[in-house]
């Protein structure tokens, strides 16, 4: 039930994170987006550089946009026994398995890095892509995180050391589709906000398809035989719109001190845990 209150000296919580991401080619300049009432120009060849906005479709509070944890049978993932056991050990503070704010063990709530693929699957905001001759940089608004995708023809390492964001290589599937493979991700991260698990054997495929000059689509496929009996598509052609070159990307940071203050004022009292 909603409640209307009239207050003097509004005690708002600072809106931080309290509510609780081919082969070598020459660098390409970022180009301006088309005017609003103008039909988009054709996609440039082998170019996904620019500042891209997925709109609210990238927020994904219940899990990936195409596979949210909402209790619907069509969104039930093909868990292995280990996958189900690991899922049940994860206590998200959103979705159908949501626990109270003070009881979650979501690592991102505690300001751990999202890692891959969660950087694509939760709070995916304005994203900048920079192409250089040997690698592609992806710069994310959430956490001010950047990733490197190697495009110098190397293979993924056979036994990669674990990293929060794994180890990524990219190739052009055709002139408008850039495919990134990622391995070696840290097992401590969750796949998404809903607590879907992954193992060190996880492989993530990201397919960036430039539809036209102003539109980029992202498809993300999860493949982890230890946790899932078959690959599943987390994002299916999530559209991004190209922003003007002078677009100023905001910052979106997780602050441990803000989180402590949030729990003291809101999270713990709301969870019946006192003001600690």
């Amino acid at each position: 039930m909603l409640r209307h209150i009239l207050i003097a000296a509004l005690a708002l919580i600072p809106p931080g994170m309290l509510a609780s991401p081919a082969h070598a080619q020459a660098a390409l300049p970022q180009q301006p987006a088309s005017a609003p009432n103008q039909k988009a120009a054709p996609a440039p060849r082998r170019d996904i550089s620019g500042t891209w906005d997925p709109g609210n479709g990238g927020i994904q509070p219940l899990g990936p946009r195409n596979m949210p944890e909402d209790g619907k049978p069509e969104h039930q993932l093909p868990y292995t026994p280990l996958g189900l056991e690991t899922l049940n050990a994860h206590k998200p503070s959103n979705g159908v398995r949501s626990v109270l704010p003070g009881e979650t063990n979501d690592p991102v709530v505690y300001c751990d890095p999202q890692g891959m693929p969660r950087e694509d699957l939760y709070e995916l905001r304005t994203t900048q892509i920079i192409q250089t001759p040997l690698k592609v940089f992806v710069l994310y608004e959430f956490g001010k995180i950047w990733r490197v995708v190697w495009t110098d023809g190397r293979d993924l390492p056979k036994e990669p050391e674990p990293r929060w964001f794994g180890y990524s290589i990219g190739k052009w599937e055709d002139d408008y589709t850039f495919v990134v493979e990622t391995a070696g991700t840290d097992e401590r991260t969750w796949v998404d906000r809903a607590g879907r698990p992954h193992s060190a054997d996880l492989r993530v495929e990201e397919k960036f398809h430039r539809v036209d000059h102003d539109t980029l689509e992202l498809t993300v496929t999860i493949n982890d035989p230890k946790m899932y009996t078959k690959p599943w598509v987390a994002l299916d052609k999530l559209p991004f719109k190209l922003q003007p070159p002078n677009f100023d990307v905001r910052e979106m940071m997780c602050s441990p001190s803000e989180f402590a203050e949030y729990n003291k004022i809101i999270g713990n009292p709301a969870s019946g845990q006192g003001n600690k």
């Binding site: 209150i5 207050i7 005690a11 708002l12 919580i13 809106p15 931080g16 994170m17 309290l18 509510a19 609780s20 905001r125 608004e141 905001r250 910052e251 979106m252 949030y262 004022i265 809101i266 009292p269």
Partner: peptide, 14 residues
């Protein structure tokens, strides 16, 4: 009575 109320993140609020 003092209320504590939360919003979303700065990007959303802006």
């Amino acid at each position: 009575v003092h209320w504590a109320a939360e919003t979303s993140n700065p990007s959303d609020m802006v």
